[in-house]
Design a protein around this nucleic acid. Structure first.
Lengths: 143, 143
DNA sequence: GTTTGTGCAAATTTTTTGCATGTAG
DNA sequence: CTACATGCAAAAAATTTGCACAAAC
């Protein structure tokens, strides 16, 4: 899968690229790694990859859709494996307590795909973020 | 509003903080500014604020909820005004160059509202984030 | 063999911080 | 008055890049 994607664009499958992707797969979804994290984790596994290459590889894998770039809070961008579970799922988040519920919606995906197409963009994925207040927080006193 | 929020935490309303927030309000929707952008725009308006203070202020305003940090752009974080006047518009973001297009979609809003309702949440706003690759970046080499 | 990729170190870009001075409350 | 905030410049992070060498195809 990685191999085909690479060859399709005249790119090469190197040990470094395999290592980076394998690291994410080994950790599973839900792990948010910065470039520095990836570099250090690989070093600990005796599979050194230079930091510059980590950066280049993260960008490559994200562009190819294997990884997903996340919102960066403090200190750098983070990436996670884009697994089926987290793809195209949407979130309802309580802005008070952070409680999060997930849902799916075909119309939303469709709208996202059409919007991308309308601007000439190549779609990767779309996520709807609904900011709301959960039942518990609604019944609590306003601050 | 800004004043109250600040005083509540023992903070002060300075001209600099007012200027940064006013800049976002003046530009209105559809503006995703990096710290550097804010700094330059204010300079052009003869309302200089040091870059260090811009960074400090963006973080403050985002924490207070006046600004919202956006996901996914190369070369720095971006902020936009959050609030009733500018809610419910969606973004198509190029994951490589950060180019962002906005759009609206009734079905998306509907889906968000229904999802919130389904979980018993009280809706505040919803934003669809579409990750994609823009035409320019599709044609550029990746290394 | 080509052509692409890597490592290294240096260069850039982005963000934070220490400190003296200024100022809102 | 007295915290808190600003500006400046320097420091620290984060990311990119030039180039010689290595290696995938």
């Amino acid at each position: 899968m990685l191999l085909q994607g690479l060859h399709q664009d005249g790119r090469r499958l190197t040990p470094q690229r395999k290592r980076v992707l394998e690291l994410f797969e080994r950790l599973g979804t839900g792990n948010h790694l910065s470039a520095e994290d990836v570099h250090q984790q690989l070093a600990q596994l005796e599979m050194k990859v230079s930091l510059a290459t980590v950066y280049r590889t993260l960008r490559l894998l994200a562009n190819m859709g294997f990884l997903q770039e996340l919102e960066l809070s403090e200190g750098g961008r983070r990436f996670e494996l884009s697994g089926a579970e987290h793809r195209d799922h949407h979130h309802v988040v309580c802005i008070r307590c952070g409680r999060t519920e997930e849902f799916e919606s075909e119309p939303v995906l469709l709208a996202g795909a059409e919007a991308a197409k309308g601007f000439g963009f190549k779609l990767i994925e779309s996520t709807l973020n609904v900011r709301a207040i959960c039942p518990d927080c609604q019944s609590k006193a306003m601050v």
